[in-house]
Simulated assay, not measured.
Amino acid sequence: MLTLHTSSDCTMVTAPPRAARGYFANVLAGIRDGGAMHARYAALARMSNTDLARRGLTRAEIMRAVVAGE
Rank of each mutant, 00 (worst) to 15 (best):
M1L: 14
M1N: 15
M1P: 14
L2D: 03
T3M: 05
L4R: 08
H5T: 07
H5F: 07
T6M: 11
S7T: 12
S7M: 04
S7R: 12
S7K: 14
D9V: 13
C10G: 15
T11N: 10
T11D: 06
M12L: 15
V13K: 05
V13A: 06
V13F: 09
V13H: 04
T14I: 08
T14N: 03
T14G: 07
A15G: 03
A15Q: 01
P16Q: 11
P16G: 12
P16C: 10
P17R: 06
P17C: 03
R18K: 13
R18L: 12
A20H: 09
A20V: 03
A20N: 05
R21F: 12
R21Y: 15
G22C: 13
Y23P: 02
Y23M: 09
F24Q: 04
F24G: 00
A25G: 07
A25F: 08
N26R: 14
V27P: 03
V27Q: 08
L28P: 06
L28H: 11
L28I: 12
L28Q: 13
L28K: 13
A29N: 10
A29P: 05
A29D: 14
G30T: 00
G30Y: 02
I31W: 08
R32N: 11
R32C: 09
D33T: 12
D33L: 12
G34Q: 05
G35C: 05
G35D: 04
G35I: 01
A36G: 07
A36W: 06
M37W: 08
M37C: 06
H38D: 11
A39C: 08
A39M: 13
Y41S: 13
Y41C: 10
Y41L: 15
A42W: 05
A43C: 03
A43V: 04
A43N: 08
A43Y: 03
A43K: 07
L44R: 07
L44K: 06
A45K: 10
A45L: 06
A45V: 10
R46C: 13
R46G: 12
R46I: 08
R46W: 12
M47R: 09
M47V: 00
S48C: 04
N49C: 04
N49M: 03
T50L: 11
T50G: 14
D51M: 07
D51R: 15
D51C: 07
L52M: 04
A53G: 01
R54S: 11
R54W: 05
R54Q: 11
R55F: 05
G56T: 02
G56N: 02
L57I: 02
L57P: 00
L57G: 01
L57E: 00
L57N: 01
T58R: 10
T58W: 05
E61V: 02
E61A: 10
E61S: 07
E61Y: 01
E61W: 01
I62L: 01
M63C: 11
M63I: 11
R64E: 11
R64S: 09
A65G: 00
V66D: 00
V66G: 01
V66C: 01
V67L: 14
V67M: 12
A68K: 15
A68P: 05
G69W: 02
G69A: 02
G69E: 02
E70M: 10
